[in-house]
Design a protein around this nucleic acid. Structure first.
Lengths: 347, 347
DNA sequence: GTTAGCAGTCCCAAGCGGAGAGTGCTAACG
DNA sequence: CGTTAGCACTCTCCGCTTGGGACTGCTAAC
């Protein structure tokens, strides 16, 4: 990481050091950083005039820019990218943080339902940004068990439990009046038949089934299909308070963040870009697919077990964000969630 | 509603009309309202000087106040309260809105899991404020069914289904290695035994049970107790974007709203004040229990079926909020949710 | 009881100006 | 030739002042 990479060969070692300082200082202070500030605040060893010359070179190369004439320099998207890829060093959460997170997770470990929420909360706090976590999604949901519960003569509750222990509840409007005893009879006859099947396989059973059984099987198919589809996947976010209050999102900009999170359009935009199973991926500024994300940095990773169950998690922040902290947090969280999935799903 | 109430007898009919206009105008514009504005904008029939005299009387009586000398008048908390109780009229959502909401709900009706989220989203939109919805909570959770699924030799998944169709998943750390066959045997033997029992009754079964059965029963007890306790109840909110962006929450104030929602401390504060089963309840400004809520108005209602299952829902907004719209929305939503619960739980 | 007129108060937004920070350029230095 | 000191210039930010607008309370007349 500290050796000069081919694509960084345009920059001298000193320029790289200065770029690093500019990014760090600007992330910390939020203001444009000038040559004098740098010499005063860091043991840089050369005078402000030299820094100025180097800064001019960095600006020429497109790594920094000045928002206003005679103002300080601010990293460009390219500058941030260079920092993340070549200057930042290997992001690894401090072992103290790791222990703390793991400890917190132990306490809710037995409450499966709240894992996603909890992961979002923890990630938001450690990364200091808005976090996004999707529930683990099985590649192909397979039925383990279901139950039918009579609510009204024509209304029943269908509870699906998949092989991967995902539970789903649905309401059924029955075509004819049915009592609990009848429903139980149907359920009993179908439950062994459908064990271990996926949506399509359940759907294949409808031919030749009685009308009511047929209806139940159709609904199960719909339910299982719903668990497969990406759009249905529940997505939680947390930590808006971290990103609000920051100077770049003072007025209207705050609205755009909320819009982004609310619609879930964020996932739709970022998801296609994600290559599965790899390490943490970072999208900075104009690297992002949507215009709405132009002023943001996105750090994402997938978690889960290859080919069986996966989810995504990550953080969203201003382009001026603490990438080191975000990346290390996301990486660790992804590992932790993967471990938990391993416990849950691998035989 | 239009006749003079005893506690309103201090005010003349004209003062009441003026107070009504002040509230409405201030809610709409957000600015302090002066005598001249009123005569210009509304067909009030008297001159601004008369309005001024009446305003002075209203101020004397404590219904309005002027934030700055020589500025316009703003309703006090008492003024808002008088407006809500005596001037506003019966809040009933327009039938168009009612139909729209009911229609939207039809589309997700079969997805029980997302009811709370969806209710929060709809309520936030129709009321134009932040909405808060708690999941329906059963008075005493009774077990309908449970399943044990082996994950690892010493790790099992416990799925609880209550009589009221609430599903809960828990992870169990087994004291000894156990295979699926063993777990199934234990489950089979206990499932009929525990059907219809509440937490305490399940707990009574532990005496004389085998070590593993005993452990499972204890965990079921914990799970059921968890469903009973108020703190565990999941609470969703939606619509922060509505309340942000409004002038009164420009800077730091926005943070306080988020803090309020995040910690869930809101519910803890408001809940004790709520009398169950009654109509919509309104808390304005200093009527609120917590200091943090001093600048807010809260409109809350309970929903559910008496003695069986209840939840709460409501909206939170600045004291300067459109009470009519909020109250009518909350009232309608509570009725709608109650209807749905009726379908689900009443035999 | 109501209204017109008036003097006085206060908020708000725009305009102004100085302090501070930073830049580019030039000339001197090792 | 790279580095540094100095200088003139630019631009933002913050506080101050100032004029316009809005509203009030009071008084006197209707």
């Amino acid at each position: 990481m500290e050796t000069v990479k081919p694509d960084g060969s345009q920059l001298t070692e000193r320029q790289r050091a200065i770029l690093k300082l500019i990014v760090q200082e600007h992330v910390a202070s939020g203001r444009a950083v000038g040559s004098k500030t740098l010499t005063e605040r860091y043991p840089v060893g050369v005078s402000s005039a030299t820094i100025r010359n180097e800064m001019a070179a960095l600006e020429e190369a497109g790594y920094v820019q000045q928002p206003h004439t005679s103002g300080g320099r601010v990293p460009t998207d390219t500058g941030y990218r260079y920092y993340v890829h070549h200057l930042m060093g290997a992001p690894e959460l401090s072992s103290g943080d790791q222990i703390m997170i793991r400890h917190q997770f132990r306490q809710v470990e037995f409450q499966l339902d709240s894992w996603v929420d909890f992961a979002a909360a923890v990630l938001a706090e450690t990364a200091g940004n808005v976090s996004i976590v999707s529930a683990p999604r099985t590649m192909i949901a397979r039925l383990r068990h279901f139950e039918l519960i009579s609510l009204q003569p024509r209304l029943a509750l269908l509870i699906l439990v998949t092989q991967e222990s995902v539970v789903r509840q649905m309401m059924l409007h029955l075509p004819v009046d049915m009592e609990q005893a009848e429903l139980s009879r149907i359920a009993d006859s179908l439950v062994t038949l459908t064990r271990g099947l996926d949506a399509d396989e359940v759907n294949d059973l409808v031919v030749g089934a009685s009308p009511v059984s047929r209806y139940v099987l159709e609904q199960i198919t719909i339910g299982l299909r719903g668990l497969n589809s990406v759009e249905r996947t529940q997505i939680r976010h947390s930590g808006i308070e971290n990103i609000l209050g920051q100077p770049e999102f003072a007025g209207d900009e705050a609205q755009s963040v909320l819009d982004l999170l609310r619609g879930g359009s964020l996932l739709g935009a970022v998801l296609p870009q994600l290559s599965v199973g790899n390490d943490v991926q970072v999208f900075i500024g104009d690297e992002n697919p949507t215009d709405a994300l132009r002023r943001f940095g996105v750090v994402m990773a997938t978690y889960g077990i290859d080919g069986e169950v996966t989810g995504i998690l990550g953080v969203l922040g201003p382009t001026r964000m603490a990438y080191w902290r975000s990346i290390s947090s996301v990486r660790y969280m992804a590992r932790l969630m993967s471990d938990l999935m391993e416990d849950l799903y691998s035989s």
